[in-house]
Design a protein around this nucleic acid. Structure first.
Length: 590
RNA sequence: GCCUUCGUAGCUCAGUGGUAGAGCACUUGCUUGGUAAGUAAGGGGUCGGAAGUUCAAUUCUUCUCGGAGGCACCA
């Protein structure tokens, strides 16, 4: 039997043809899995067509963990339909299907797909004169392939995951189609494992953890805005305090600027023209105000209020700035995407020559903070000059070279996203990977050649001439709200000791020891975020309850401890550590 | 914003065209217990909101608000 499924070309595409430089794709490899998933998309399409003969198939690629197929179907599919489709797919697989490749002309293709306007659209947009079809027993699809010869070459284990809407060609003015998402694997075990991972991710959902740990509330009274509870605010403050200390070491000036700002500033900055639709506005005293969607113009207002000389540069303004952006209702997503969020923002004013120094210190800071909060896998992207941009060639060239140098000097491997920079300057983006393998773009360093001159920022150089500074926008974790969600899901609520809202639960074995515990709590709670559970419950119950609240340590206090003066510190897994006195206990948490 | 779907007690969720139920939590009593649920009793809900159909709506219909999963969007 043939052990080669298809080929992988030099540019990474899959192909049936062994073009020069291609690598063979072996059976059951990762690439073969993708091809199998694409096979399954065709099987799905056959199943759907057999159950809904008027349905028009459109496109159906493989994706991470599975595949989808978009259909135009007269009525919307329900749970029952899904079950039927799954059964039908199983039937088809039992019979087995071969995928026969046919090369035909455009005209022939137009004839074959004449009832399907979507396929016609695709065919008309294909440049080649010849195109390929893959034909199976009861279904034929326009498809560049490749496919396995026959489904009998493997066991496919699949499951339909969900149905959703998706615009034809991804354009929101086009018709919305029905997208069927499914997952597929070569073994039952892989499938089950994947389904288990989905369950695991649900268990770790930050909304669930937020409720269990008493962190925050999301309510209809302000969709997209967070009500922080005491524990959540403790967490939030612990993060900002840590960042604040680190910034202080780097000579930042922390500032606070208004949330409500006259549109005069937004008109000047250009935000009014470009982003008015995404800003919350209000009319008061016949003037228009907007909630700030970002902090930069406000920081330039501060910069302009003083006489700044070259001796003051680099000048670093930081702000935990509360920003508001109107996000479409469908975009809101727990703490991940909100309408009111706090940026750990800073704007650093400097000269061209200082770009390297500033970006280097910022990059180091970002690394340090990610590490402290438990993220060690970081990816780096540099986005370069787009077609539509402002600023001189020299400025762009200089800035891009310096950004690249910052990363390469510290031994980082990075991607270059050509032309992906903002119109006002290039940027570095920091993406971290969490324990479930998901990636989150958090930190960013952006050079700005535009806004300082637009808002008239000036400093005096050595010759007493007015110069326009370069401004560097910089965020470390990005939105604090979003970062808290990421860190919660990454740790499943077992937050780093530094930031966890409650570090220690003191558990008296019985009421008799409650006073001792409360006194102990008073002695330590200026250094340790501790609570006493003096409820009338048994020890086992109290332990269970503190574990459920994700409190990392407990101290069990009974006759033994009081007599010996020792403390037994229990961690979440039930391991004990003997501590001799209060000082050592405090040291442990510091 | 669009598609699908959901909204019942503090939390997780059952259920019904005749105004509701469980577990956990909570309160009280008993229990004073040594490492993940001791025990009994009790309180608690305009069934997201509005309108409509009906003798009767939490249940059906429409609108609206909010959530979830996607799509689009994300300076």
């Amino acid at each position: 039997m043939n052990e080669i499924v298809a080929y992988r070309t030099l540019d990474g595409d899959y192909s049936d043809d062994n073009i020069q430089g291609s690598k063979p794709i072996k059976k059951f490899s990762e690439d073969a899995l993708n091809i199998m998933r694409h096979d399954m998309a065709h099987i799905l399409a056959e199943a759907v067509i057999s159950l809904f003969p008027t349905a028009k198939p459109t496109i159906g690629p493989f994706i991470k963990n599975g595949f989808y197929y978009d259909f135009d179907i007269e009525r919307s599919l329900n749970e029952e339909d899904i079950n039927k489709i799954e059964s039908k797919m199983s039937e088809i697989l039992k019979e087995g299907r071969g995928f026969d490749k046919k090369i035909i002309s455009k005209n022939e293709a137009l004839k074959i797909f004449k009832g399907n306007s979507y396929k016609i659209d695709l065919i008309e947009n294909i440049k080649d004169k010849k195109l390929t079809l893959y034909e199976q027993k009861n279904f034929i699809d326009l498809c560049k392939g490749p496919h396995h010869q026959n489904t009998s070459e493997y066991d496919a284990h699949f499951k339909i995951i969900n149905i959703s809407g998706a615009y034809w060609r991804g354009i929101s003015t086009n018709k919305m189609l029905q997208r069927i998402y499914a997952t597929a694997w070569f073994s039952k075990k892989d499938l089950e494992n994947h389904l288990k991972n989905i369950e695991e991710a649900k268990e770790r959902n930050h909304r669930k953890l937020g409720t269990e740990m008493g962190l925050f509330l999301l309510t209809e009274f302000s969709a997209g805005n967070v009500f922080w509870k005491a524990n959540g605010l403790t967490l939030y403050s612990n993060i900002t305090n840590y960042i604040r200390e680190e910034q202080r070491k780097l000579n930042y000036f922390e500032v606070k600027t208004p949330e409500l700002v006259s549109n005069e500033l937004w008109v000047k900055s250009g935000h009014w023209d470009n982003f008015k639709e995404n800003m919350f506005t209000t009319e008061t005293d016949n003037k228009t105000f907007a909630l700030k969607p970002m902090n930069c113009p406000c920081h330039i207002v501060l910069f302009n209020s003083e006489l700044i000389t070259y001796k003051d540069l680099p000048l670093r303004y930081s702000e935990f700035g509360k920003c508001h952006r109107y996000e479409p209702s469908g975009a809101l997503n727990g703490l991940f995407r909100v309408r009111g969020f706090t940026m750990d923002d800073a704007h650093i004013f400097c000269t061209e020559d200082q770009i390297y120094e500033v970006c280097n210190e910022t990059s180091t800071l970002i690394e340090k903070i990610y590490k402290e909060f438990g993220f060690t896998k970081v990816k780096y992207n540099i986005s370069t000059r787009p077609e539509k941009s402002i600023g001189s060639d020299e400025d762009w060239e200089n800035a891009e070279v310096q950004l690249k140098k910052v990363l390469s000097d510290s031994g980082k491997i990075f991607n270059i996203l050509e032309g992906e920079g903002a119109f006002y300057g290039p940027k570095i983006e920091f993406t971290l990977e969490d324990s479930l393998g998901r990636e989150w773009q958090c930190g960013t360093i952006q050079i700005d050649f535009n806004l300082p001159s637009r808002l008239g920022a000036k400093y005096k150089d050595k010759n007493d001439d007015n110069k326009t500074p370069i401004m560097i926008h910089r965020a470390l974790v990005g939105s604090l709200e979003r970062f808290i969600a990421i860190i919660l899901e990454n740790t499943n609520g077992w937050l780093p000791l530094l930031i966890t809202p409650i570090q220690l639960a003191i558990l008296p074995i019985s009421e008799k020891f409650a006073d001792y515990c409360n006194e102990l709590n008073i002695k330590i709670n200026h250094k340790i975020r501790s609570i006493v559970d003096d409820s009338d419950n048994k020890l086992g119950y109290k332990i269970r309850s503190s574990v459920a609240k994700k409190i990392p340590y407990t101290l069990v206090i009974g006759e033994k401890e009081i007599e010996s003066g020792n403390f037994t510190l229990r961690n979440k897994s039930g391991e004990n550590k003997i501590i001799n006195n209060i000082e050592s206990l405090i040291d442990f948490f510091e």
